[in-house]
C-alpha cells in the first residue's frame, strides 16, 4: 500500500486540475465505454455551471441513445417524441423568451424522422441551440443505418455496406441549415481528443451567449463515434472516425456571426 500521508496537500484546491461539474448528477451513465455522448454531456454541464444559468435553462432530450439525458444533468427537462425536439423547444422559447433553451439530438432523431421540425425551426430562426450528435448510426436500437451513415458503411440494415443507389446518400444537415437565413451560428466539432473537447466547449459557450442576442438558431454538430454500433474498440473507432467521418463531415465553422457575444468567452 502506498503511503497516504500528505494526500490532503495533493488534493488541495490549488492543485485541482479537474472536477466533476455540479450540474452533473450522481446517476451512472448508461453509455457504452468510449462513447462520445458522455463527454458532450460533461461539456454541456460545465458550460451551464460556468455561465451560472442552471435556474434559467431548459433542455429538450430526444429519442435515441441520449433519451435518458435528463437523468444526468440537474436542470429542468422535457423529453420529446422522436424527432420533435425542435418543435417542443420552439414553444418553450416562445413562451419563456428569457430562458436558455437547447435540444440535444442524434442523427436519426434530427436528420431522419425530425428533418421537417429541424429545418423549419432553423428557418424561422427560433432562438435556441440545437446540439446534433452525429455518429452515423442508430445506436440505441442496435446499429441500423442512419441518414448520416457513410456510403459503403456497414450497419445491421445495410449489412453489405450502404449502397447509395438504393439506400440514398448521407444527409449533411449541418450544411443545409447553414444556408438558411434563420441560423446565426453553425459549426461542426468533435469530442474525441482534448484539443477538440476545448474547441467544442468554446463553441457551446458562444452558442449560449449568442442566445442572449435573440439573433436566431445556433447549431452545433458533434461528429462522434459509436464503438458498439461500429463494432470497434474505442481507440479503433476514433481512428476510423478521423479517417472516414471527418473527410465527409469536415470539422470547423460553417456560419460565423460578425457580431461577438455580449461576454467574451472565458479562457478554457
Amino acid at each position: 500500500m502506498k503511503d497516504m500521508t500528505g494526500i490532503k496537500e495533493i488534493i488541495s484546491p490549488e492543485n485541482l486540475a479537474y472536477k466533476k461539474s455540479e450540474i452533473l448528477t450522481d446517476e451512472i451513465m448508461h453509455y457504452c465505454p468510449g462513447c462520445g455522448h458522455s463527454t458532450a454531456h460533461r461539456i454541456l454541464a460545465e458550460i451551464i455551471e460556468e455561465e451560472g444559468i442552471q435556474q434559467d435553462t431548459i433542455g429538450v432530450s430526444p429519442v435515441g441513445c441520449s433519451v435518458f439525458l435528463y437523468n444526468y444533468l440537474n436542470i429542468d427537462w422535457q423529453e420529446a417524441a422522436h424527432g420533435r425536439a425542435p418543435a417542443v423547444a420552439t414553444a418553450i422559447k416562445r413562451l419563456l423568451p428569457e430562458k436558455f433553451v437547447f435540444t440535444y439530438q442524434g442523427d436519426g432523431d434530427l436528420a431522419a424522422i425530425g428533418t421537417a421540425e429541424t429545418i423549419h425551426a432553423c428557418n424561422r430562426g427560433e432562438n435556441f441551440l440545437i446540439i446534433f450528435v452525429n455518429n452515423g448510426i442508430y445506436g440505441m436500437t442496435g446499429g441500423q443505418m442512419a441518414p448520416t451513415t457513410l456510403p459503403g458503411m456497414k450497419s445491421s440494415t445495410s449489412p453489405f455496406g450502404r449502397d447509395v443507389r438504393t439506400m440514398g446518400n448521407p444527409l449533411k444537415m449541418t450544411d443545409i441549415v447553414a444556408t438558411l437565413p434563420g441560423t446565426y451560428y453553425v459549426t461542426r466539432q468533435s469530442v474525441h481528443n482534448p484539443s477538440n473537447v476545448k474547441k467544442t466547449k468554446r463553441a457551446m459557450r458562444k452558442a449560449f451567449q449568442y442566445q442572449k442576442l435573440n439573433k436566431g438558431t445556433c447549431f452545433i454538430e458533434i461528429v462522434s463515434n459509436c464503438p458498439s454500433g461500429w463494432k470497434m474498440t474505442p481507440v479503433q473507432s476514433n481512428k476510423w472516425m478521423e479517417e472516414n467521418m471527418f473527410p465527409f463531415y469536415p470539422l470547423g465553422d460553417l456560419k460565423v456571426p460578425e457580431e461577438q457575444p455580449v461576454q467574451q468567452p472565458k479562457s478554457e
Binding site: 420529446a80 414553444a91 418553450i92
Partner: peptide, 19 residues
Amino acid sequence: LQAESEVAAINMVYGGAGC
C-alpha cells in the same frame, strides 16, 4: 404560431404545456 405541420403543432403544444 403557424407550424410547419400538425405534427409540429401538437409537439409545440407539448412544449408549451410542459412549461
